[in-house]
Nucleic acid binder design. Sequence first.
RNA 1: GCCGCCUUAGCUCAGUGGUAGAGCACUUCCAUGGUAAGGAAGGGGUCUCGGGUUCAAGUCCCGAAGGCGGCUCCA
Length: 591
Amino acid sequence: MGSSGNEVEKMRHTLSHVLAAAVQELYPTAKFGIGPAIENGFYYDIDFGKVKVSEGDLAKIEKKMRGVIMRGCEMKRRVVSRGEAVEWAEEQDQKYKKELIHELQNDEEVSFYDLYDARTGEVLFTDLCKGPHVKNLEEIGAFQLSRLAGAYWRGDEKREMLTRIYGLAFATEEELEAYLVRQEEAKQRDHRKLGKELELYCFSDLVGAGLPMFTPRGTILRNMLADFANGYRERCGYRKVCIPHIANVELYKTSGHYQKFPELLKFISQESGDELALKPVNCPHHSQIFASVPRSYKELPVKYLETTMVYRDERKGELGGLSRVRAITQDDSHVFCTEDQVEQVFGELIESAKDLYQKVGMKLSLRLSFRDDSDGYIGDEKMWEKAQAAIERMARKFEMEYSIGLGEAAMYGPKMDFMAMDALGRQWQLATVQLDYAMPERFGLEYTDADGSKKTPIMIHCALLGAIERFMSIFIEHTAGWFPLWCAPEQVRILTVNDQVEGYVEEVEEVLRGVVLQEPVAENHLRFEKDLSDDSLGKKIKKATEMKIPVVLIVGPKDMEAREVSVRTRDGEEKVKLEDLSGWLIRQNGQ
RNA sequence: GCCGCCUUAGCUCAGUGGUAGAGCACUUCCAUGGUAAGGAAGGGGUCUCGGGUUCAAGUCCCGAAGGCGGCUCCA
């Protein structure tokens, strides 16, 4: 069994044909879509027609697959003319295959693969396919069918919904087992599990789906993270602003959101009959602060910053944990500047993003989100070309590796998006810096240039955390809930051994109250709690550990005697003199 | 929104047609205990909600809400 990536991929792809063969035998009327190899395995998209297939049927299909493999089958390539291929699809009544063959218009010949029994020569399954495959099915390693999902034919939600059967496949049983163990470990870090255990946020059916509420602990974490992200921009001259969470829909008719985005939440004023909307973005409001007085080129760039919620009527099936919500807190900033200030402003934000993510120990990948040919964008072609060229130039200037995501742009302009992965390997967009030549024009924003002429400013949108909810979801999983000292909701917990420590606990508390942790968020007084309950020490330690409190101070008669505290961190235990405690904690924060 | 699955005590879960259980948590009592669960007793459930089938429904059927895995979408 070859172990190279290529061999594994061949094996995975071959398995998708074995899956199809098994399905055809069990469900003769099944119509087949496509069945590629993917990371960790393979899938096949199948139309079962009226037959209902559910996860319970996977065992049966898997058993049949193993039966096919046991027969000693082989894969053999066969090239036929296009005409023959069409005939085959017609004969087999495979409409999806037929569609695929029709698209191979430039090819004179079409490649098929036969899965056949090497002893009898009987062909079990024939599929339109370019390969490559393992020749002999004995070369197939370890696999199992994992789950069942719906998937639109050709990824188009207007077309048929097929049933996708996913399988896992690895070269060896050990690798498969290791993968399953990794998945199990990842589930332990899932922010939805930890969010509940660490009492960070909750949902209520009465409040509604996708509307998280943050507990006191979660709110501390949120605020710390927001302050951290805002600090970068405040040091670059950004000034905080504050806007209402609703607006007359005229605002969004002007921006274009009203026409282009069905996620806009609208309602009617009982008083005036006006149609209002919950803000889905902040830029239109911020543009109106800019527009509130005449602007001179001398005051540019104008930099606004606000951490605030936006509201989007996301479709139900797209919601999930804190990753995708309907009330989204953005650490949003907008800059209004001249053409030749773009590079400077953009540069500051890129440097900030790089530094912030480096400090929290997260490695992000960069995606340049450009437009595609579809409609749904505002602004003319030339603006787009200019903006996209500028974004790419910037990525090169800062020597960042990037990929280009066509069709990922914002309505008003291209973006530089920083992507993170969650515990289960799914990609999410966090930080984003966006260049916008369109919105200022739509709002008629202007400033007076040196020569007295009116000019339209350029807008630069940025969120460093992206959405705080989503950032938290990734951050929780990344740290497994062991937050760094500076942002941990409860930084220190004092545990007592018994009640024979009269006066001493208060002395320890007094020391803690005097500790000021400076970095990375300034004026951060220490957050501590006491566990004076009559639980055993072991139980108190268990509770504090489960809550992932970074620093646990044990204060008992022996400590009182020695005028010290027993310190317990994730790294181990040590004794610290009371007089050294303050310095010890400040040093901990530096690590 | 679409496909599939799930929803039983605050939490994690058992209970596959005959009238509801465990562990943890909680309350009270005992225990004053030194580095991941000290002991005992007690309270707590319209089995998510609404219909239906049945002599009988947590259990079967239909619908809704919420959640999970995908698809699609994501300013």
